[in-house]
Design a protein around this nucleic acid. Structure first.
Lengths: 208, 208
DNA sequence: GTACCAAGCAAGTAATTACTTGCATCTCAT
DNA sequence: ATGAGATGCAAGTAATTACTTGCTTGGTAC
C-alpha cells in the first residue's frame, strides 16, 4: 500500500471531477463575456453547465472564485507574443504579417476572457491588476522589435512606438468589431494582415 | 391670458426641473460607464445626483428610460464626422490630422456613453441597434474621402478601407487605453495625431 | 459489501434591487 | 392667501441573487 490515496485522486475520480469543473468554467466564461460579471448569475451558469447550482459552490468558494480562475488564462500573453517574434523572417513585411497573425489569433483564442476584462475593468480589482498592463504589452513588444531594426540601420526615421500602436490597434479594432459588435468586416483576416503590413511599411502616398 | 401654461413651463419652473433631470442623467451616465447598467443601481444614481431615489422615478418611467435617454447623445456622430471633413486643407496630412482631432475629440466628449455601449452591447437591444453601426462609421467616412482623393489622381494604390481602418483604430485604442484602462500613453494627443498621419502617408520604411 | 465521494434535490436565508404609495414641505405665480 | 407642481421622507413589495444546509442517490475502489 504505497500512497494509494494519491493514485486514487489522479486516476479514478479525477477525470469526471475535472469535467464538471471545466463545464462550469466554460459556461461562466461564455456568460460573463456576454452579460458581464453581474449579468452572469450563478443560476444561469449552472444551467448552461448542466449542473445543479449547488455544485457550482462545491467547486468554487464563491462567484469571485470563478472569475479569478478564469483570469489565469491571460497571464502568459507577453511571452507568447515575444516567442512569435523569435523565428527568422525573409523581410520586415513577413515579420509584420506574422506578428499580426499571432496577436489576432491570441485575441480570438481568449476572446471571452478579454471581453470580461473590458467589461469588468472598473469593478474588480483582480481584473484591473491583471488587465491594466495588457493593452500596451503588444505595442511594446512590437515597438522594441522595430527599434532593434532601426538600430541595425534597416529602418529609417519614424516613431516606432506610434507605428506599433497603429499596427496593433488595427487588429484589436477588427477583433472588437467582429466579436463584440458582430460586425462584418467584409474582409478575410489574412488579407487584412497583408494590407495593413504593406501600408505600415510603404504608406498610402508612397511614390513607389 | 394667452397660453400662460406654456410660459410657465419654459420660464418659471422649467429651469429647476431641467437641473434635477440633468443631474440624474449626469450621474447615471457616469455610473453606467463605470459599473455597467446593472452596476449602476437607481439608489447609487440618486445619491450621486443628490436627489431622493423617488425623484428618479418621477422623472423617468423606469431605469431603461434613463438609458434610452442617454443613448440619444450619439445619434449624430456620422454628420459631425462628415462636417469635420468639409473645410479646405493645405494637403492630405493636414486633413488627416484634422480628422484625427475631430474623431478623438468626439470620443472623449461622449466617453461615458461610448463606454456604456461597449459594456452593454449584448444586453440591451436599444444599445445594439444604436451602437452596432457606429464603429465602422468613422472608418467609412474617411475611407470614402480617401477614395475620392484616389479618383482625383492625388493618391496612388493602397486599399483606402484598410488605411482608414488603421487610422481610426489607432485613436480608438488610444482612447480606450486612457479612459477605460487608465493607462498613460506617455504622449501628447496632438503629437500622436501628427505621427500617425505621417506614418499612414509615408510608411516607416519610406526611402524618403 | 462497505466505505467514499461527487452530484442532485428541496428548502431556506439574508441582502439587494427596481419600483410604488401616501403624506408633508417648500417655492412660486397669480 | 391660494393652488399647483416639484421634491423629500418613510415604508413597503415582489423579485432576484449569492450562498447554505441536510438529505438522498449512484458510481467506484477495496
Amino acid at each position: 500500500m504505497d500512497h494509494p490515496d494519491i493514485e486514487q485522486k489522479l486516476g479514478g475520480r479525477g477525470e469526471e471531477e475535472q469535467e464538471t469543473r471545466e463545464r462550469i468554467l466554460l459556461a461562466a466564461r461564455q456568460l460573463m463575456a456576454q452579460k458581464g460579471y453581474k449579468g452572469a448569475t450563478t443560476r444561469k451558469i449552472s444551467e448552461l453547465a448542466g449542473v445543479n447550482e449547488v455544485t457550482v459552490f462545491r467547486h468554487f468558494k464563491n462567484k469571485v472564485g470563478i472569475l479569478t480562475e478564469l483570469l489565469k488564462e491571460i497571464m502568459d500573453v507577453r511571452e507568447q507574443l515575444e516567442q512569435g517574434l523569435q523565428g527568422e523572417f525573409a523581410d520586415l513585411k513577413e515579420m509584420l504579417v506574422s506578428y499580426a497573425r499571432t496577436y489576432y489569433g491570441l485575441l480570438v483564442e481568449r476572446k471571452e476572457i478579454f471581453m470580461i476584462c473590458m467589461i469588468e475593468a472598473d469593478n474588480h480589482p483582480e481584473v484591473v491588476q491583471m488587465f491594466s498592463s495588457l493593452p500596451m504589452t503588444a505595442v511594446q513588444v512590437l515597438s522594441n522589435k522595430l527599434l532593434a531594426f532601426q538600430e541595425q540601420g534597416h529602418l529609417p526615421k519614424a516613431d516606432p512606438f506610434t507605428a506599433a500602436l497603429m499596427f496593433v490597434s488595427t487588429f484589436f479594432y477588427a477583433f472588437m468589431a467582429k466579436y463584440r459588435v458582430n460586425l462584418d468586416l467584409e474582409m478575410v483576416e489574412e488579407e487584412l494582415f497583408e494590407n495593413a503590413s504593406e501600408i505600415l511599411l510603404q504608406g498610402i502616398s508612397g511614390l513607389k
